[in-house]
């Protein structure tokens, strides 16, 4: 991974962080697809599996700390997300929502874990796939419950509106359900992770550059840049949790909407 550690002082003057900082080289030369984000996703899958298998294996009535931690996360997704939003049919969707939440959360937090320090979701392909999955799930659920024709009709034609108004409203409804929803779902997650990583790079690399500058005044102010970088790291942690939550929350809301009898 050392090959991808970057310094602000290469070349002349300060090199501001940009999109090229997300273009990481393959870890093994010649294996083009195997980059850091891919490795991080694999690591996250292993970590999550091991954590929850271990926390559930020796499940006891009086839980150990480990079991308690696992059960708190599960309980949070099951009760505060699935049950509150979807209602009586919620149990079917808990596995998906739970996996989604934990997967996104872990991969987001990789952004501030020392030495890993890269949020997987700042590569837009990962949020796209997750959003496509959620898109498929909530439409599938709706189609299964209502049948294709009734489901589309429910979306496209709001009851109690004079017919000509449908020319105005139907395109908006269809665009919302089939375009804007998956797009906002993925882009919100991607943009937050991308911008957050960029923000941290600015302050950390800026601090490094100032520290290496020949002027004393620059050296003196470098610690402030680092301090700000640390403060923003805590802020990032908050954003990372929040984004995992919002993604899961919206998926649950969309499922609930697809299950509802009428809009």
């Amino acid at each position: 991974m050392l090959a991808s550690v970057r310094s602000a002082t290469e070349g002349d003057g300060f090199v501001p962080p940009g999109t090229k900082d997300f273009d990481l080289p393959p870890i093994i030369e010649g294996v083009e697809w195997f980059t850091k984000p891919v490795l991080l996703v694999m690591v996250s899958v292993v970590l999550i599996s091991v954590f929850f298998v271990l926390s559930a294996r020796k499940a006891a009535v009086v839980p150990s700390k480990f079991q308690f931690a696992g059960e708190s996360i599960y309980g949070f997704v099951r009760n505060d997300l699935a049950k509150d939003i979807i209602g009586h049919e919620f149990m079917r969707f808990v596995p998906y929502l739970f996996t989604l939440f934990v997967f996104i959360l872990t991969n987001n937090i990789f952004g501030i874990v020392p030495f890993l320090q890269f949020p997987t979701m700042s590569h837009v392909a990962f949020p796209y796939v997750l959003a496509a999955l959620s898109f498929f799930v909530f439409h599938y659920v709706g189609v299964r419950k209502h049948g294709v024709i009734k489901y589309i009709k429910d979306i496209a034609f709001m009851p109690g509106v004079p017919k000509p108004v449908y020319i105005l409203l139907t395109p908006i409804e269809l665009a919302t359900f089939f375009l804007v929803r998956p797009l906002t779902l993925s882009l919100r997650l991607f943009a937050n992770m991308f911008a957050g990583h960029l923000l941290l790079l600015v302050f950390i690399l800026g601090g490094e550059y100032m520290l290496n500058d020949s002027l004393l005044i620059m050296k003196l102010f470098a610690p402030f840049s680092f301090l700000f970088g640390i403060a923003l790291t805590f802020f990032e942690f908050m954003v990372q949790c929040l984004q995992a939550y919002i993604f899961t929350l919206l998926t649950a809301l969309y499922i609930a909407g697809a299950l509802a009898d009428e809009h």
């Binding site: 105005l168 395109p171 908006i172 665009a175 919302t176 375009l179 804007v180 929803r181 906002t184």
Partner: peptide
Amino acid sequence: SIFGYLISGLLFW
């Protein structure tokens, strides 16, 4: 939903 509708309304029309 308001957020989604506003975006798609603006985008489409």
